[in-house]
């Protein structure tokens, strides 16, 4: 399977220290923009109780789930601190602000 990237919009569509969600046929993906303009894409679904991670507070390269305050690394998708669990991460490209993501891991999981 090829690492094909799909355009999702511009970095300015996302507030600094914020997130937006991208809806796909296989579920939602949360796309983050950090204080230093790094971008990340992870599942928009907390493994604990399904909270929408794109609604969480973004701090450093991490997000806190709005439902029960689980914290996830945006880089690795791993839950931080005492909680255990992880979310899928997606490769994301930023070319002069134009963002695109690879859905490889999404479709792999769906197949």
């Amino acid at each position: 399977m090829s690492q094909e990237f799909v355009a999702i919009g511009h970095i300015d569509d996302i507030p600094v220290r914020g997130a937006r969600c991208v809806r796909t046929a296989h579920g939602k993906i949360a796309v983050f923009r950090t204080a230093t303009d790094e971008v990340f894409a992870i599942d928009d679904h907390c493994p604990h109780k399904g909270g929408p991670l794109s609604d969480g507070i973004v701090h450093g390269n991490a997000v806190t789930c709005p439902l029960h305050n689980w914290v996830f690394s945006l880089e690795s998708g791993e839950a931080q601190g005492a909680d255990e669990g992880r979310v899928r991460t997606f490769a994301i490209r930023n070319v002069d602000g134009a963002l695109s993501i690879s859905l490889a891991s999404l479709t792999e999981a769906a197949e």
Binding site: E4, V6, A7, I8, G9, D13, I14, P15, G18, R20, C21, V22, R23, T24, A25, H26, K28, V31, L103, L106, T107
Partner: peptide, 17 residues
Amino acid sequence: KHEFNPMAVLDSQQAAE
């Protein structure tokens, strides 16, 4: 406005590729 809408909606075509 950005709070209330998805950034993008990818149809199944794109996602399945």
